[in-house]
Write a protein that binds this DNA or RNA. Structure first.
Lengths: 264, 264
DNA sequence: TGGAGGGTTGACCCAGCGTCAAGGTCAAGC
DNA sequence: GCTTGACCTTGACGCTGGGTCAACCCTCCA
């Protein structure tokens, strides 16, 4: 008959694995010769190869035992189920391969395609890479907060970009990263923004219910303020004119303007 | 920013996993708010999603860390390697699926195709299933002992089956399982075997160097003897006529016949 | 004010073996 | 008969990638 290493080699497993199967009762302990060595017959070979076939399919050993000790119809059902899982796993790995390819190509993978397309459109308009990166990080955070509605939010941004004034605004903002602190062009930016805001309010496009949490809106705004000295000046100018916010624009009633000051 | 559960949900991992990555230093511990809660930024999202993409590809976390902290060319090389492994894994799973299908179809998988074909040929000759099973188990043991030369051994058996006398022999042996203990047809079997042996010796086809270990040959012979009472009688008749063995046939010189008796 | 639903750390548990450790056995050569 | 090297034996600990309590703290809302 066979020694344990012959058995193991033929079935393509290690000796250690065979002994493990004995301990957990998956493979019955065979007879021993007079020196205590295990000696195996063909039945053991068949069982071990069946065990490996199922285990290679990713079936836990406890389930392998159930299946091998069950009737033929239970076994067939189990095998069918395993095959389905195997098929799903193959597709998962294929999917992982394509994600890996995107990762190698330099994509961040942290954003849905719609946002990536939007950032590419900005890039196409000549917006600087530094500015795009700031936008990207903001979008990553937004997508993390409201993954379900990110596509519709982006759709709105695309519509906004159809307006040449908005395109102009972006190209100014992009360049603004290098402006001196008191650059007068910031007023031009404020003018464009105000025109855009007025138009948006008139078209009834300003809805506070975009699904993004208030605190989070404040946070994005303050991140923006920290990113550039111009941002604070810009917000101040707009606030004088009765507007508040950046991420989400609000009209501030004139009479409240003097009493309500920003907390910080 | 994001809490741990928001981060985890967006990246598709559990909170526990994120904390695990912190412990092993894979994801840097972020700032805490004043109550000790971790707060995450976009950089953490990007890193976590990269971690998951690599981990989903089956990369050990230690290697993920190496890759993410390495330069772009090392990273690219690593990713390529991982992709190769992934591809190999997909093929392995596809292979496992086909083995699984064969298992479900009732195959034993413990034998190479050549032996399965050989057994099918015996079946086609009308040999009984009980006899086939005995043969199968013997072939499993032989294949386990000499996996590299099993195909050539089987090729020889196929040639033997081209001889109508051999076919007759098998059909008799198959039926012999139900013969009464003293059935005279056993002599007919012996006659056929002797004719076949004589022819084999004349053709120079008997070579002791078939790669199968002597002890193992003895073992197969004794298994055969135990399997049926006729087997012992058959061997006895042949031995009277100067032949020894079953698995491997040997001519015994006439002068040694009287002095050398079987030990048991 | 208290309860739900977050968050925090820490400790133990799991499969499926790999990897020593510390020997006993067998076959072969000298 | 002795040694050598390749096997065999049991037993115990280690590893990955977290899951699953436990015991407690923080925040928010009614």
């Amino acid at each position: 008959m066979l020694t344990i290493s012959q058995l193991a080699a033929y079935a393509g497993v290690t000796v250690r694995a065979v002994r493990h199967y004995h301990r957990i009762g998956l493979l019955p302990e065979p007879e021993r010769d007079r020196s205590g060595y295990r000696i195996y017959d063909a039945v053991a070979v068949v069982r071990l190869i069946r065990i490996r076939t199922l285990a290679d399919a990713g079936v836990p050993l406890a389930r392998v035992q159930e299946l091998l000790d069950a009737g033929p119809e239970v076994f067939a059902g189990g095998v069918q189920e395993i095959d389905k899982a195997l098929h799903a796993e193959i597709r998962r790995l294929q999917n992982t391969r394509s994600r890996l390819a995107r990762l190698a190509a330099g994509e961040h993978l942290a954003l849905p395609q719609s946002v990536v397309d939007y950032l590419d459109r900005l890039r196409g308009l000549g917006v600087e890479e530094r500015y795009i990166e700031m936008e990207r990080d903001a979008w990553i955070m937004i997508a993390a907060q409201v993954p379900h509605s990110i596509d519709s939010v982006i759709a709105k941004k695309h519509e906004e970009l159809d307006d040449p004034e908005m395109v102009k605004l972006y190209s100014l903002l992009s360049g603004a990263l290098d402006w001196p602190a008191d650059d007068p062009r910031i007023v031009e930016v404020a003018d464009i923004m105000e025109r855009l805001m007025v138009r948006a309010v008139e078209a009834g496009e300003v809805d506070a219910d975009d699904g993004i949490d208030d605190q989070f809106v404040d946070l994005l705004d303050s991140t923006m303020v920290e990113s550039s000295p111009h941002a604070a000046r810009l917000l101040a100018i707009l606030e004088e004119r009765g507007w508040r916010g950046w991420t989400r624009i609000e009209r501030v009633p004139a009479e409240r303007l003097k009493t309500e000051l920003p907390p910080s």
